[in-house]
Design a protein around this nucleic acid. Structure first.
Length: 437
RNA sequence: GCGGGUGUAGCUCAGCUGGUUAGAGCGUCGGGUUGUGGUUCCGAAGGCCGUGGGUUCAAGUCCCAUCACUCGCCCCA
């Protein structure tokens, strides 16, 4: 029985061309978040089980995480998300950190579930958090940063929508304004979350099923629908407009719009992460109907650091998975042609591999990435190898070239071949690296 | 956990109502002579038709089971 060559279910092998794409995405992400003053951190991929139990339901931990016991009898989880970890790290140094604290990471995360489009068992996720800012300037910065990320990938604002809501506003509307009890608030919130996936008629009847007879009589369902149909905050009932949450949300959206982020808007059906968000929440959707999904999102969660027994630290953050990002870039054709890191492929003519060592060393000394063909095959075959590797430049080196210290540099894309000195070759190749055409 | 789809060459797939030695394109390898790739020409290799069982004179094709992959649902921290 032969061994299978498939990677583990729901996980990916990154062949060089895949890794190249990942490196491109990650370096863009790093560039932009660092431009906003965020610093990179990291942590172990394993965490003790408890930190997830404290925050989320047991069901999720038991059924959707990789849990095992180590040799010392400790319950261990392969991290399914970064938020508990970063909260733990902040809590550990609560007193000595410099706030506002701006941190980011691109961790590899695992969850145990059936793989489907856009969701595997393993993924990488950009996590960006700002700690220690109570007012909405934190939300404003984070969402501005998300918008800057899209711009850095070449996306225009027509390609994505930024939808915002506020946890406390929804709480007010459902609990106080509509006078729903706690259970109904919870169940109806779950329904609202799925509202766009079902027929309106189904939604109405499912809501009805959760209402008391009096509520069915007094038009609760109609009032709920009119809230959910609101296109902007001004469409909400007058009582809601004076709520602090409404004022916060209005301020954030207004400032975003003023800054030119015109695709940010209120969406009362956005429920995201009902469990632990405490304030503004947001999600960014692909406007392409083929890929109309949430790509990234986040919000304010002021309570998590406090779970570690220290004074709470107000926090706003978001996460963006590599798979949804890659899907977005592909569907909008925003991926540039990515080339290998190798600048030059050295083709040896005849038995000159010893004699070419000095040349190789000189090129590398000048920071040129050079791979040499060691096969000893015919030149044509060596060219084919370079071609197949996707390389642009081939340097032809035989006895004549070595003795004259003039080498033939061929561009495989244009077919042009010229004879140059080492110094000229270095600058030509570096020019191309910095500005490929 | 529930439901749908698909398993034939390295890849993408074709094989109609069951009927001799299982096909194509791409890719791979060799060749068109000795210092030049991509286009072209000639040639070759490569398949237990996912696996096990059943029906039949006969199974890639029909039936059952099983495994894998895949798309949804649930869930989504």
């Amino acid at each position: 029985m032969a061994l299978s060559t498939q990677p583990y279910k729901g996980a990916r092998d990154f062949y060089p061309e895949d890794k190249r794409l990942q490196k491109y995405m990650f370096s863009r992400l790093r560039e932009v978040v660092e431009r906003f003053g965020y610093e990179e951190y990291d942590a172990p991929i394993l965490e003790p089980l408890e930190i997830y139990l404290a925050k989320t339901g047991e069901e999720i931990v038991n059924e959707q995480t990789y849990v095992f016991e180590d040799r010392g009898g400790r319950k261990v989880v392969i991290r399914p998300e970064m938020t508990p970890t970063v909260s733990r790290m902040v809590a550990a140094k609560r007193q000595e950190l410099a706030y506002p604290l701006r941190w980011y990471s691109i961790p590899n995360l695992w969850r145990y579930e059936r793989p489907q489009r856009g969701r595997l068992r393993e993924h990488w996720q950009l996590n960006v958090d700002i700690f220690g800012v109570k007012d909405t300037s934190a939300e404003l910065e984070i969402i501005t940063l998300v918008d800057a990320l899209f711009k850095a990938f070449g996306a225009s604002r027509s390609m994505y929508d930024i939808r915002l809501n506020h946890r406390q506003l929804m709480n007010y509307l459902l609990h106080d304004y509509l006078a729903l009890n706690e259970k109904a608030v919870h169940d109806i919130s779950k329904l609202i979350d799925r509202m766009n996936k079902m027929e309106r008629r189904d939604f109405i009847s499912k809501v009805d099923a959760l209402l008391s007879p009096e509520q069915r009589e007094n038009g609760t369902n109609e009032r709920l629908l009119s809230i959910l149909d609101a296109k902007q905050l001004g469409d909400l009932p007058a009582e809601a407009l004076s709520q602090p949450a409404t004022i916060e949300l209005k301020s954030v959206i207004g400032q975003l719009n003023n800054a030119g982020i015109s695709n940010a808007r209120f969406d009362p059906t956005l429920m995201r992460g009902f469990d632990y968000y405490t304030g503004v929440v947001f999600e960014v959707f692909d406007t392409d109907p083929e890929n109309n999904r949430s790509m990234t999102g986040g919000g304010r969660y002021d309570g998590l650091v406090g779970l570690f027994g220290v004074e709470p630290v107000p926090t706003v953050g978001f996460g963006w998975g590599d798979i949804t990002l890659a899907n977005f870039l592909e569907s909008h054709r925003l991926l540039p042609a990515l080339k290998p890191e190798t600048d030059v492929y050295l083709v040896l003519v005849g038995d000159v591999s010893q004699a070419a060592q000095k040349l190789l060393a000189d090129l590398r000394e000048q920071a040129v990435n050079v791979a040499v063909d060691l096969s000893g095959r015919k030149i044509g075959d060596q060219f084919k190898t370079a071609e197949k590797k996707g390389l642009t430049y081939v340097l032809i080196v035989g006895e004549a070239e070595l003795s004259q210290q003039q080498y033939k540099l061929k561009n495989l894309e244009t077919g042009e071949e010229e004879t140059h000195s080492l110094g000229q070759i270095v600058s030509l190749v570096k020019d191309y690296r910095n500005n490929p055409t």
